[in-house]
């Protein structure tokens, strides 16, 4: 006799659902709607904007000094990162990098809340973001150096015979940045969320399956709690890695062969 265990698909949490949708046979067939990913992106953006608008008005939101100090330290942390990675010439790009860091961090953390949605676990979103960044960095490099920017694809001291091959490799590597940057973030978040849901599903089955399971319930709960702690750490680290690499790409575009 086989026992069938029914479990939910752990990928179910990543399904994109339309909250509001306008569809009609207009201009062919248009669909205008707000999906859950769009909603969370809007929510994160609005939250960051609102928080910074009311940053100095302590009385409005009742922001405590501690929260303001935390925001300041976060600001200082990203500023130091930009200074270290890009140098003094990278200061103009700090607002973009700071916004990017907060945006990704907030989306990562919001995604960890049960019943919510993790936008950064979607390759479509992260790849779009990373591609936009790499494209922007390329435009920046072309604007700063003109066609000399393409010297980035020829490492210094390359023998002439190897130039075509290395240029090809470097060009592929450069384009791969846009993919790797997005995939790294999405894969990490996706893996963490799948792992959490898998463990929660197995734990649920274990706890509800028998009385012994119910007695031993604290063990899997403790394990999931620890996993949650790990995922919170991963959320911070991935946001940090994303902006760190963005800074590195900007530095490449500004200084070309400085290293």
């Amino acid at each position: 006799m086989t026992k069938i265990i029914h479990i939910y698909n752990p990928l179910e949490q990543f399904e994109i659902v339309k909250f509001i949708a306008l569809e009609g046979p207009l201009f062919g067939y248009i669909q205008i709607g707000l999906t859950n990913i769009g909603f969370y992106l809007l929510l994160a953006s609005l939250f960051i904007i609102l928080l910074h608008l009311l940053y100095n008005k302590e009385g409005v939101l009742g922001l405590s000094n501690t929260l303001m100090l935390c925001m300041e330290s976060l600001f200082g942390f990203v500023l130091q990162l930009v200074k270290n990675q890009v140098g003094p010439s990278g200061q103009p790009y700090f607002p973009a990098i700071y916004s990017l860091f907060l945006f990704i961090l907030l989306l990562n953390l919001v995604g960890l809340i049960p019943y919510s949605f993790c936008a950064t676990a979607h390759f479509a979103f992260t790849l779009g973001l990373s591609s936009t960044i790499v494209l922007g960095v390329t435009i920046l490099g072309l604007k700063l150096h003109g066609f000399h920017f393409f010297s980035l694809f020829v490492p210094a001291g390359t023998p002439l015979a190897l130039v075509p091959l290395l240029t090809l490799i470097e060009a592929v590597s450069y384009v791969a940045r846009s993919v790797s940057l997005g995939i790294r973030l999405a894969a990490n978040m996706l893996a963490g969320h799948i792992l959490l849901h898998l463990f929660s599903t197995f734990s649920w089955k274990f706890i509800t399956g028998s009385f012994l399971g119910l007695l031993l319930a604290p063990l899997p709960l403790l394990f999931i709690t620890l996993l949650y702690g790990l995922e919170i750490g991963v959320a911070f680290i991935q946001a940090f890695v994303f902006v760190l690499l963005t800074c590195s790409y900007i530095q490449d575009a500004i200084k070309l062969h400085s290293d």
Binding site: Y115, S200, I224, Y228
Partner: peptide, 14 residues
């Protein structure tokens, strides 16, 4: 009550 409840409990705990 389902698997997500466990996540709520563990999330609240952490």
């Amino acid at each position: 009550f389902n698997e997500e409840t466990l996540l709520v409990i563990t999330f609240a705990s952490i």
